[in-house]
Design a protein around this nucleic acid. Structure first.
Lengths: 153, 153
DNA sequence: TCATTTTCATTAACACGTTAATTATAAGAG
DNA sequence: CTCTTATAATTAACGTGTTAATGAAAATGA
């Protein structure tokens, strides 16, 4: 019979990194993006810019705070991205008439064109992942993730 | 009865951002870290440094590539972190005797001390999350995430 | 052995993440 | 109507993420 003292004292050892939720989330996100990133790169956008394009395509004109919230991009990052994306003609920016603090963003012609080019590739990759992983398991996973997100501090 | 033409043409609209797996993963990770980040900040480390400390505490001396892989930190980031962390005495660095290319990393006294200080707080936060979300659901979630990670490109 | 290729780490360059400070405008209190 | 407070966006500063290029050492192979 095994002597209990043979068990190493791991009172100072944090949870094994292999079974840690934050790390599993990080790893899963990396794995997901490894599918999409090369395609986005081919089209000359990064992940964050693609999120901005999608949100504006989905909801029309929005103020910067709303875009930041929906894309999960922090305001300082978004400010930098707005500069780059307006210069490329992907989005347009103008101040809100009613509230001078607000910056309104809208998808611009080059952004629409990008959307048309990227969407089919994106949909194809997502569909393949759905097919390989199972649509039901993805649904289940998203449900768990969204429930977890409710627990934010 | 609803006319089918009332349904807007969304052939160009990517999956709603609310039901996109990459975004759900991002949001869930943000939510998780919102619990840990203030605590880590209080102890003067960031999330990435804490991962390095944990991996070295868990596995002893490792070469930089191994640490990069286990912490999911890219080599260039790790190089920068090694400089900062050795200066703070959190880790030690020396070249491998057998292979002159390899850099061996090991937890140092200040790193052990940090581990002792942070671990209880970390464990407490994790336990609270387990209690609120359910240990079984966390297990289920980690299983799904790890299965998803297998599908990397 | 020597040239080639491969591997590990670093550097470089640029973008985003993060927090704090700042500016400009709006909203609210008196 | 002013003073104060709150909000939106920007700027600043620094660290990490990411890719490409470079340097150094080891492995390969003619």
């Amino acid at each position: 019979m095994k002597n209990p003292t043979d068990i190493p004292d791991d009172s100072l050892a944090p949870r094994a990194t292999r079974r840690s939720l934050p790390i599993s989330l990080l790893r899963a996100r990396e794995a997901m993006m490894s599918h999409f990133r090369p395609m986005l790169d081919k089209h000359g956008v990064n992940e964050q810019q693609w999120r901005v394009i999608r949100v504006l395509a989905e909801s029309g004109k929005l103020d910067a705070s709303e875009v930041a919230e929906r894309t999960h991009i922090l305001a300082p990052s978004l400010t930098r991205m707005i500069r780059a994306m307006t210069e490329r003609g992907l989005i347009s920016k103008d101040r809100d008439a009613g509230d001078g603090r607000r910056v309104m963003l809208e998808i611009a012609p080059a952004g629409m064109e990008l959307l048309r080019r990227v969407s089919p590739d994106s949909a194809r990759i997502y569909a393949e992942l759905e097919q390989r992983f199972g649509k039901d398991r993805i649904e289940e996973l998203i449900n768990l993730l969204d429930a977890l997100s409710q627990l934010k501090a």
